[in-house]
Structures are given as structure tokens and as C-alpha cells.
Nucleic acid binder design. Structure first.
Lengths: 365, 365
DNA sequence: CTGAAAGCGCTTACAG
DNA sequence: CTGAAAGCGCTTACAG
């Protein structure tokens, strides 16, 4: 843990001032385009600045002005396409607003998250966007963050946290997916993957229940199969599923990773998703469209979600960060229909409540 | 383009000093654990610091010390899993060395890249790691960067650039992939995807040629099919390939994205990769293992490559950045054999020069 | 229109 | 062992 990046001697305003025979105050004013300074002086200064390859030192400027032009972005798992696209969206929107992104990856470790946040805080970000590591605790984070820093938690809830929280509409999304399967004639539908301890999983499970109940189907307890949202575990469930639940014909999965893993596992048991079995995902990661069969899924769009997160935090920064207590911002989701992963139940009607399958990907609200 | 993140009044050393009845100089010394300061004074200062929730202001400290503890990381496409994993690797290694990552995504646009680099430079990074947007020009970048900033270009060469350059061993990697197919009995092997304008593509193509020639196979010009390294275009080639090159039985692809797209396209033409046709990729993105069939590919490991990039740049920072002219650092690659995408040619021997297929993923040097 | 001075939060010789 | 002072590069009232 050393860090001694020695900065080279850069051109400063003093250099420009001495070259132009003016004061640094004038240089500063000229470079910001202040109307106070004489047109010709400004031009002289600008040319000298250009010629000397001057780069403004924002740290010094921000220190003096007592402002910050950076936002800390802490991401639990950058190798996961969902979070990577989310981060790209955040960065894009921040850059457009003139802010810079201070990145911190935590690799899903709450301990590393503490270290990373502590380190980022020392660089005086104007705000923090946190996609928390699994197992993060609010009390712990509070002691790091204090109440001064505008903070937005995204994607996952933090137990015991009271920060603004951005999530996509998990309940409604799962509802959409389940209704889609119901419309295809399926009635025995499993809910696969995720853990009860995860808030997003609970919400999605509720959406699934909502849809079944409103179709007068009594959900069977055994239809819910928990597992960590990683491929291998989902694949393991896929291998077991045909044996355990032979009459189930479809599955609403916690997310795309689980759905993809499940389909692999099913295949290993001789059940071909998209022909013998219907599967839906959640997130619409790039792999969802690419997989064979392409996966019908639910999404707010990770990139769009990231941009939204940045907008929310920018509002809070510009607005002076009045805490009015925790807010929950729900981003709308849509069903992304790729018929291949969801065959209709044999002999059933294929009407899918309005979502026609054009053979290409299509989105239904 | 506004950025006015107003910093809240944070605790400073002045606050601690006044609480403890000592000078700020003493507080500074105490907090850095200087042996000069009295044990009890140090403890008092530390307790006060803790109690007041003090967070060191690195910008101020770095300004005074004339050092930087950040590194700029400019990435052409964060939504692409390869670059996302690369970025995660960079961030991880930088964090371990006490540096922070200033992230800038360019979305593959040289114009945005200019803006992003300019913005990052103002935050005084100790160095720059650049995975350049396609179409970047050295001359252009030089005018932004000057010669002061330690810079490492990674993944793709910049035309007219003379910075240190990190790449995986493209030529040898393609050689490995091609030899693998040859060993499976294939002789008519296409090279699919990428553009001649890309240095990595040219290198991989050379490795492919090397292998063919050393097996005394005369490569046919028509076997080389160019396309942008995106799924759709590769899929389009896949649809055409069986018609255009009916006797070709295998393809070495520019990268995984191309390979996956190609396999989709082939499937649309009734050719099933892994049964009727053999395909190899390059990069080993996560999707490669997940795809059906799992893809045999070549990789230096995007995460490992990122960590290596960070190490190289850290050396340069700590070492005082003596430019000894451009260096090219070649990261070793290995063949990742997943038999499913590469069936042996009908009736051929299945010996794959030493790489046994255990049914699970395995790596051959 | 321009300059001298103070100050952002910190660190570092230099006295004591 | 501790403090007063100077200074990193910039901006901002305040005089002139």
C-alpha cells in the first residue's frame, strides 16, 4: 500500500503570467473567460496557455472554491455484464454533466468495500453511487459515510440503510414474466434462483405470486427453488428439476444468469428449454439475446439504470442535498420477448397478452 | 456541462487541533504516525479524529506534496465484457497499491476520447492507461498528453503512437488455435472477422497463416472473411459461409464475439457448430464458456491483462518515468480447450497436440 | 481593466 | 517533542 506518483513539473498559471507579463489573477480570470478582462489580454493569455500546454489543476481550483467535480462509483462486480453496463451508464451521464468518475470495485466483498469507500472519500467526491457488495450493513457504512455525502444506493438494498435507493420494478417485472408464461398456457410454473435474504429476490417472488394468484392458480411451495445467483448452482438445479418437479413446464428465474444456467442444466437432463420447457430471465444482459435459445427476459436496461442513477445524484448535488429521509426510486421495466425460450404449452392458445412475436426481439411495456 | 458539487463543511485538521489544543502541524504528524510526536499526544489526536469523523483531504495533501495518488483509465467500451473485466483488473491492482482509478468511458468515439482525456488530465492523474477507441490517432493524443504523463496503451495499437504498448500474444494465440484445429484433422480452415486496419487482427491472421504453412497447407485467399468485430456482422457471415465456402470445415475467429455470432449464423443456415463445423475464438470472455456449444478459445485473461497493465504503469510511476522510447509488452496466452465447439474432422485422429479433453475446461500452455 | 492579498487543507523544513 | 511559517496552484473579494 504505497502511492507516491510523483507529478512532473507542469505548466502553471504562474508560468503563463510571467510569459504574458500579467498577474496570475488576470490569467485565472482570462482563462475562465471573465468579461472583466480586456479582449487582447485574454487572447494573449490564451495563446500562451496553448503554447505552453497548460492544463488547469482542478484539485487546486476545487480546493479553493470548496467544490468537487467528481463522484465516487462503487461497484460490487465489474466482471458481471449487468454491473459493467450500469457503470458505463453512470460514467456517461456524469461525464456529460462535467463530473469525473472515481471508480472502486469491491469484488462482492464487504471488507474490500469498506477499504475502497474509505479511500475514495479521501478524494472528496461530491457524492457516492453505491452498488453494494452482498452482505453490506447499513450501520457499518454509516460510520464510513457520515451524513454529509449525498449517497444513492442502487440495484440492491442495504440492510439497515436509509439512503436513497434506486431499483427497477422487481415486483412488476416478475409479474410480467409470469403473466407471459400464463398466457402461453403454462400453469405449473417454478420460481428459480436467488435467496430470500435478497430484497430483489423477495420482490420478484411476490410479483410471481401475484400473477399466479390473479390467474387463480395456487402456487405450490415446492415450485420455489432457491440458489445463489451464479451459473453453476442454477445449472445444478436444472439437472434436478425434471426429477423433482416432473409436472412443471416453465420457470420464472430470478435473473438471466440463473436462467442461462438453468437451461444448461435442463439440457444435461435431456430437457430442451424452448421446446420442452419455458424459461424467463431478468436483467437483459447481452448474453440473454445471444444464448441459444435466446432468452425472454425483463429489464430496465442496465445502461439506462446507470444514467438514471447519475441523474438522481446530480440533482441531489446541485440541489444542495436536503435529506428528506430515504426515498425509493423505482425504474420502470419492460418484458423483452424472445419467443425461443418460451414455447407455448402443448395445445394451448399462444396469445401472450398483446405481445406479438415478430420473429425479432421486441419489447412490450 | 456544469459541475458545481458543493462540498459540505467537513472536519479538518484545524478542528482537531483546536479540540486537542495543539497545532495543525502536530495533528498532521500525529495522524501520519510520525515518531516525532509524543505517544499520548498522538493518542489524543487519533481519538479526536475518530470522534469528529475526520477524513483526510488527499487533494490538499497531494497538492502540497506534489504527488498524485490516482491513475486515469480510459476504456473504449465498458459494455463489452472483455474491457469490463480488463478495467476490473486494472482497478483491483491499482487499489492494492493505494491508487485510485479515474474512469473515463469513450464509447468507441475518438472525439469523446479527446474530451474525456482532457477532463481526466485536469484531475492530475499520476499516469494514464488507455484502451483506445477505434480510429485514435497518435498525433492527436500527443497534443493532449504531452510527454510528461506516464502512459500505457493497451489492447489495441494507436496509429502513430510511441507509448508503451501492452498486448497479449496475438500471433502465437492464433497459431495455437489453428494448430488445435489442424490436429483435429481440419485442413480447410477459414479466418473470420476483424479488419486488416486493426493491428491485433493482422497479428492473429499471421499466426493463422504460420500454422497452416507449417502444416504445408496453402491458405486460400477466399478463406479470409473480414467483418467488424460485432455479433450481427459475424452472424451474417455465418449465414453466408456454407454457401460461399462449402468445403471449409472450421474457422479461426478474430475474437469470441465474432465466434459466437458466427455460430449463430451457421445455425441459421443449418450448420451446427460443434457437430458439423469447428470454431475457435479469442479472449475467453465469460460468454465463451456459457455458450452452447462452449467455445474453445485463446486468452491471456482480461482480468490478468488489466492487473498487468496496472503493474506496468505503477513501475513507471515509482521509477520516475524515464522514457526509453516505446516498449511493446507481450502477455502470454493459452489455449482454452472446450471440445464442444471443435469436433474432429470425420474420420480424423482426435489427438490435439497434447491437450487432452477431460470433459471439463482445461488450459494448455 | 488589473494586481496584491488572503485563503482552501494540508505538509515540511526550521526554530525553539 | 511542538509550533510558526511558508507554500502547493488556484480563485475571489477588494483596491486601485
Amino acid at each position: 500500500m504505497t502511492a507516491t506518483g510523483r507529478a512532473k513539473a507542469r505548466t502553471t498559471m504562474v508560468d503563463i503570467a510571467s510569459v504574458c507579463g500579467v498577474s496570475v489573477a488576470t490569467v485565472s480570470l482570462a482563462l475562465r473567460g471573465s468579461p472583466l478582462v480586456n479582449e487582447q489580454t485574454r487572447e494573449r493569455v490564451e495563446r500562451a496557455s496553448e503554447r505552453l500546454g497548460y492544463v488547469r489543476n482542478r484539485s487546486a481550483a476545487n480546493l479553493r472554491r470548496r467544490v468537487s467535480t467528481s463522484v465516487a462509483l462503487v461497484i460490487n462486480d465489474l466482471a458481471n455484464p449487468f454491473f459493467a453496463e450500469f457503470a458505463a451508464g453512470v460514467d456517461e451521464a456524469l461525464a456529460a454533466a462535467g463530473y469525473i468518475t472515481l471508480l472502486g470495485g469491491t469484488g462482492e466483498s464487504p471488507d474490500r468495500q469498506d477499504v475502497v469507500i474509505r479511500s475514495l472519500m479521501e478524494h472528496s467526491p461530491a457524492a457516492l453511487i453505491l452498488s453494494p457488495a452482498e452482505g453490506s450493513f447499513g450501520s457499518n457504512l454509516h460510520s464510513l459515510l457520515g451524513y454529509l455525502l449525498p449517497t444513492l444506493v442502487s440495484n440492491r438494498e442495504v440492510a439497515g440503510g436509509d439512503w436513497d435507493f434506486l431499483v427497477c420494478d422487481n415486483r412488476y417485472g416478475a409479474h410480467l414474466a409470469t403473466r407471459h408464461l400464463l398466457a402461453l398456457g403454462h400453469e405449473r410454473i417454478a420460481f428459480v434462483g436467488g435467496h430470500r435474504s435478497s430484497s430483489s429476490c423477495r420482490e420478484r417472488h411476490r410479483g410471481y405470486m401475484d400473477a399466479l394468484v390473479s390467474s387463480c392458480i395456487l402456487p405450490h411451495d415446492a415450485w420455489v427453488m432457491e440458489c445463489a445467483p451464479v451459473r453453476d448452482e442454477a445449472a445444478a438445479l436444472g439437472r434436478q428439476l425434471p426429477g423433482l418437479l416432473p409436472d412443471v413446464t416453465a420457470a420464472v428465474c430470478y435473473n438471466d444468469i440463473v436462467a442461462l444456467g438453468l437451461m444448461q442444466g435442463l439440457a444435461a437432463s435431456g430437457v430442451q428449454a424452448g421446446r420442452d420447457f419455458a424459461v424467463t430471465g431478468f436483467d437483459d444482459i447481452d448474453e440473454a439475446a445471444l444464448f441459444s435459445p435466446p432468452l425472454t427476459t425483463v429489464s430496465a436496461g442496465p445502461g439506462a439504470l446507470g444514467r438514471r442513477a447519475a441523474e438522481l445524484i446530480l440533482e441531489q448535488i446541485e440541489g444542495g442535498h436536503h435529506r428528506e429521509g430515504e426515498r425509493k426510486i423505482v425504474a420502470p421495466v419492460e418484458l423483452v420477448v424472445r419467443s425461443s425460450s418460451c414455447p407455448p404449452l402443448h395445445g394451448a392458445s399462444t396469445s401472450t397478452d398483446g405481445a406479438r412475436d415478430t420473429g425479432k426481439d421486441m419489447k412490450a411495456p
